[in-house]
Structure formats: C-alpha cells, structure tokens
C-alpha cells in the first residue's frame, strides 16, 4: 500500500529517529543510506563525559541503533536515490535500480563540515598538529587520548561570515569545543586547553554546567587568530588579545579547527532530483513555522540538511518530521 510507505533518505541520527518513529506508528519505512554503516557522522564522535555526562548526545546514536534492532525498518545501505517520480501520496522512488512506491519522503541527508582547507592561513593540511574537530572526535573515539599538552580550539571556522556564503552561526561548534576541552582535561590531567572564540554560544539548558566548568578549567580567549605557522616550539598562533588590543604569539601542540556545518556539497543536485528549493545558505528550504516541511508537498526535512543542529536537536527534528508525515498521511487518506 503506497500510502503507508515512507522513504527516509539518510541513516544518520535524524533519519533514524524519523524512521523509527514512523515504524512505531505503523508505517512501512525504507531507509536509504549512502554509506555501508548506519548512524551517520555522529556515530564516529566520542563521548565527552568528564566524571559526569556533559549531555553531548553521542550516546543517542547507539540508543537509536539498539531500537533499530527490534524495529521493522527496511535498510538499503550503500545505496542512493536515483530518481523520484509522482507526487505526494504516490511517489515512485528508484533506489539501486529498484522502484519503491511510497507516500512521502523524509530528507535527512545531513551536512558537510566546513572544508578546513579553505583556511590555508591556519595551516590545515600543511602543518602537523592542525586538525579539524571531527578528526579529533574520531581520534578520541578510537584512542581516547591525544598526544599533546597544549591544545587550542579555533572557533567559527566556516561560520558567521556572509562573505563565505555562511552568514549563520553553526550552533554546535562552541558546545562541542567546550565539551571536548573539558573531557580532554578530565582524562589527561596536565593538559592545557585554550579556546579562541568570537561569541561563545553557551545558551541552552544542556550547557549550564558546561559553561560554568569551562570558565574555571579552560582558557577562553576572545578573538579568533588569522594565522598559524610552524614555530620552534610547535604551532605558533598569532592573535590579537581583546581586552588590551595587543598582538600576541603563542605556541600549541595541537590546533583544532572548530569547523562549522555546511550544506552537503551535493545538496543542490539532490534538491533538483527531489524538486525542492534551497534557502539562501544552500540548506533545504523549509516552510515558515514548519521547519520539517520542504517546499514540495509530501517531502519532509529532518536534521542538519535544513539548518545546523546538534545531535539531540536532530533527533527531535527527526521525530517532528515523523509526526508531520503521519499527520499528513492521515489527512490524505481521511482516516
């Protein structure tokens, strides 16, 4: 029955949350995931607990994976959507050569981290010890520790600058940098963590304790450095210290670029395939007041493909999209 079928594009946290909710509501759900494994980017991130949970939400990935084990969801990993025909309530989606009949599509294709190579002055790819936050995440997930004593985070790489076409705050980078910093210190006493920032985004009740701890345990410096070079004693960073407007130099062992959330490089191509619109920043455009609905009836949005979101917010948005799909379907069938 076409109408009970839903196609979810993307098996990251938002897609899985949407798929699982829909499955619980009695829909026939098919998840199409480009990669071989489910869980998306968040599945490679590390737990950021100190001696207590800092509410980073990474464990939600395994909660969803567990739920998946006992749910009825069709999984098509290593596959992509090739074609979409029809209309709301009666779509025909071609995936890996086979045609699926579905009533609705949930797009949960996620994001790309800002390409760190776009900031050559910060030395990414050219100096050892300069890495992106996602690289640090996966290193911590695998090894649990870093081989460094002085670690610095540079915030807003690829965010908050209309000149790059990214006139928005990526929302997740300040929280993850502070959490990573605190978690590193808790596991490796003696480590020093510095965070160079523009405006610390510490709003949100999940972060109340994090910010307070960060103020005590991390060095928070306002102002983002423009250059980092190989120096005699590690990576030398030049920055203007804000309260006294003095130019300073300082060396670090590890420079972490807190890269922001960008739309996926193939977002425009998929938007054409789906017949949906993009917004000014290149994310999938949502209807006003309904961030889970795309510009086209029957096609819904979940997670970071619509705007930057953290893990917990992406899961919530996936569920929101599921509720909207279910309500929409019932309207069509008049149940």
């Amino acid at each position: 029955m076409t109408d009970r079928g839903v196609l979810v594009l993307g098996g990251g946290v938002a897609g899985l949350a949407a798929a699982l909710s829909l499955a619980c509501m009695g829909f026939e759900v098919t998840v199409v995931e480009r990669e071989r494994a489910l869980g998306g980017r968040a599945a490679g991130y590390a737990c950021k607990a100190t001696d207590r949970c800092l509410h980073c939400g990474v464990c939600l990935v395994s909660d969803l994976q567990d739920e998946l084990a006992s749910a009825t969801v069709n999984l098509r990993t290593g596959a992509v959507l090739e074609e979409l025909a029809g209309q709301a309530g009666d779509f025909r989606a071609t995936v890996a050569g086979t045609v699926l009949k579905v009533g609705a599509v949930v797009v949960a294709t996620g994001m790309d981290p800002a390409p760190a190579t776009g900031w050559p002055d910060l030395g990414y790819g050219r100096r050892e010890g300069v890495l992106t936050a996602s690289e640090l995440e996966s290193r911590l997930r695998r090894e649990g520790v870093v081989d460094a004593r002085r670690v610095a985070f540079v915030q807003c790489v690829g965010s908050r600058n209309p000149a790059w076409g990214r006139g928005y705050c990526s929302e997740v980078c300040c929280p993850y940098a502070l959490r990573l910093g605190l978690s590193l210190i808790a596991q490796q006493p003696g480590l020093e963590v510095t965070v160079f920032y523009n405006d610390l985004q510490t709003g949100g009740s999940d972060l109340a304790g994090v910010y307070e701890q960060a103020g005590r345990k991390l060095r928070l410096l306002q102002g983002v450095p423009a250059r980092a070079e190989a120096g005699p004693d590690g990576i030398e960073v030049r920055y203007e210290s804000v309260p006294d407007a003095v130019l300073r130099r300082e060396s670090f062992d590890l420079l972490v670029l807190s890269t922001g959330i960008w739309p996926r490089a193939d977002a425009a191509a998929l938007a054409r395939l789906l017949g949906i619109n993009l917004d000014a920043s290149g994310f999938y455009a949502a209807r006003p007041g309904e961030s889970w609905r795309s510009s086209r009836p029957g096609i819904y949005l979940a997670g970071c493909c619509q705007k930057p979101r953290g893990i917990a917010a992406s899961v919530a948005h996936g569920r929101a999209a599921a509720a909207a799909v279910a309500a929409g379907r019932l309207e069509v069938t008049g149940v």
Partner: peptide, 13 residues
C-alpha cells in the same frame, strides 16, 4: 566505573 557507549578506550583503560 562509569562508561559510555561512545567511550570504548576509556573503559578499556
């Protein structure tokens, strides 16, 4: 001991 599903190395330690 405390542990997290995303913190295998820490539990191993």
């Amino acid at each position: 001991e405390f542990a997290s599903p995303a913190g295998a190395p820490r539990l191993v330690r």
